[in-house]
């Protein structure tokens, strides 16, 4: 167990380094720079700006400086587009917001998706299954950016039940969380149904029946554990899907999270923000993947962490 964690951390370093390096050179080699859009800026000012941010240095120099700052001081550098602010400050404010949204959306997705999938599997080919499957299918098929305005229109602008923008109270969270979590919930429902269907005809379920267990006890004690394995292994990609989804949700609901800044920064060539968000995303995803592996090994005793 501890060996596994150590190994995972060791594996995290080269992958992150590779990501940082690739992104670093990609963004800088791309035509255009952070100050290109501002036509009005005179040449001297531009040069001054470039000098200030060391953008005129040779690339390898910039790269080494960036790495040194990052590794030695955890410093991601200044934002080009928000003068006077550093990327660290920006992340300190926006990361918690994105995390809140992500965790809440995933909780919502599990709370909705798993029961739907279980119902579908147990009542296979009945109206309940058809209903649960159709709901899930619609959830998978409607893009978040269509869902979001629909929710806003119905619950915010027609019924006036809920606020439609910003991130202040729990009531502000309801619509964004539903919007971010529903497609994930739909995916989880389909996976749960599939995983459970694999098992409902398994021999050990027949044994459980032969023991005299009721259907409820069979589901809880014998089916759920194995049936949820596909869901568990989906959690890694699922979280990364949520992150991507949060780009849309944060933009539409005007939530000051990381995703919104990222999109902006990418189009504006604000290199340091792009790098910072990439590093945070990468670390998050890899940590989550490691946690998912641990959960998987705990759920399935035949999988040992040593072999992962």
């Amino acid at each position: 167990m501890s060996r596994f964690i150590v190994r995972r951390i060791l594996a995290l370093v080269p992958t992150l380094w590779l990501t940082v390096t690739l992104v670093f050179f990609f963004v800088r080699l791309a035509p255009g720079g952070p100050f290109d859009g501002e036509r009005a800026v005179p040449r001297e000012v531009l040069l001054a700006l470039e000098a200030k941010y060391h953008l005129g240095d040779p690339l390898y120099r910039q790269y080494l400086d960036f790495l040194a700052d990052l590794v030695l001081r955890g410093d991601l550098g200044p934002c080009f587009k928000y003068p006077g602010r550093t990327v660290n400050e920006l992340l300190r404010v926006s990361l918690p917001v994105s995390l809140q949204l992500g965790v809440m959306a995933m909780t919502f997705a599990l709370a909705v998706g798993v029961p739907l999938g279980v119902i579908g599997a147990l009542r296979q080919n009945t109206w309940a299954d058809t209903l649960a499957t159709s709901v899930a299918m619609i959830g998978v098929s409607v893009p978040r950016f269509v869902l979001a305005p629909l929710l806003v229109m119905v619950f915010g602008l027609q019924l006036y039940w809920l606020p439609v923008a910003r991130w202040e109270s729990w009531r502000h969270a309801i619509l964004p969380v539903i919007c971010a979590g529903l497609p994930t919930a739909a995916y989880i429902a389909r996976l749960t149904r599939g995983g459970m269907l694999e098992l409902v005809r398994a021999d050990f379920v027949r044994t459980a029946r032969a023991k005299g267990l009721g259907e409820g006890a069979i589901v809880v004690r014998h089916l759920l554990r194995g049936g949820l394995l596909p869901v568990v292994s989906y959690l890694g990609p699922g979280f990364s899907g949520l992150l991507v989804g949060s780009l849309v949700v944060e933009t539409i609901f005007n939530i000051p999270g990381m995703g919104r800044y990222f999109v902006e920064a990418a189009t504006n060539r604000d290199y340091n923000i792009v790098m910072g968000v990439t590093i945070v995303y990468g670390t998050l995803l890899m940590t989550l993947n490691a946690l998912v592996d641990i959960a998987y090994a705990w759920l399935d005793p035949r999988v040992s962490l040593e072999e992962l």
Binding site: T15, L18, T19, V23, F26, V27, L29, A30, P31, G32, G236, P237, S240, L243, V244, L247, A266, V274, T278, Y281, G282, L285, M286, N289
Partner: peptide
């Protein structure tokens, strides 16, 4: 493949499209 899974693919697509597809 595992490493690429953790690579934020969106960035990849964006960078490719800006850098190589102009």
């Amino acid at each position: 493949v595992d490493a690429l899974y953790t690579f934020p693919f969106l960035i990849f697509v964006i960078l490719l499209s800006v850098f190589f597809a102009n």
